[in-house]
């Protein structure tokens, strides 16, 4: 079972934050096939958010084929997300760690790192589009 949290300052719509958190939990193995997602009511009561928002997030997860809803029971994880990302590429991770170390030696703080990373991401997307 996972616990949702919200970042009101992120500017990301609430339902997308929920979707991202489930996907993240699937990637890192926190959620596995057959696991149940929190009931809509539980999410609503703990985060004080609109039930329709939770329903929307769950619908999207379902239509993406990641979960399956069993009426009257709950929503369950349906597939294992292939471990192709962070955990599965130790080489990439090592290089990123090395990059972070190097950046810190240059005197950059966490926010600078995030900004630099976001900027690099943005540039690569822009190049991809062009």
């Amino acid at each position: 079972m996972i616990t949702f949290r919200l970042d009101p300052a992120s500017g990301v719509p609430t339902y997308l934050q929920l979707v991202h958190q489930v996907k993240h939990a699937l990637r890192v193995g926190q959620l596995q096939v057959g696991d149940q997602l929190p009931l809509v009511r539980e999410v609503v009561a703990s985060l004080a958010i609109n039930p329709n928002t939770v329903l929307k997030a769950y619908r999207q997860l379902e239509s993406a084929g990641l979960t399956v809803g069993r009426p009257g029971v709950g929503t369950f994880v349906r597939v294992d997300v292939p471990d192709q990302t962070v955990m599965a590429t130790p080489a990439l991770r090592r290089r990123l760690s090395a990059w972070v170390d190097a950046a810190r030696k240059e005197g950059l703080d966490d926010q600078d790192l995030s900004a630099l990373f976001a900027s690099a991401l943005h540039d690569s997307v822009a190049e991809g589009v062009a």
Partner: peptide, 14 residues
């Protein structure tokens, strides 16, 4: 505020 809204929203969910 949070507790109050949670009660309202849980009722809406139920």
């Amino acid at each position: 505020r949070r507790d109050f809204m949670a009660t309202v929203l849980a009722d809406a969910a139920d």
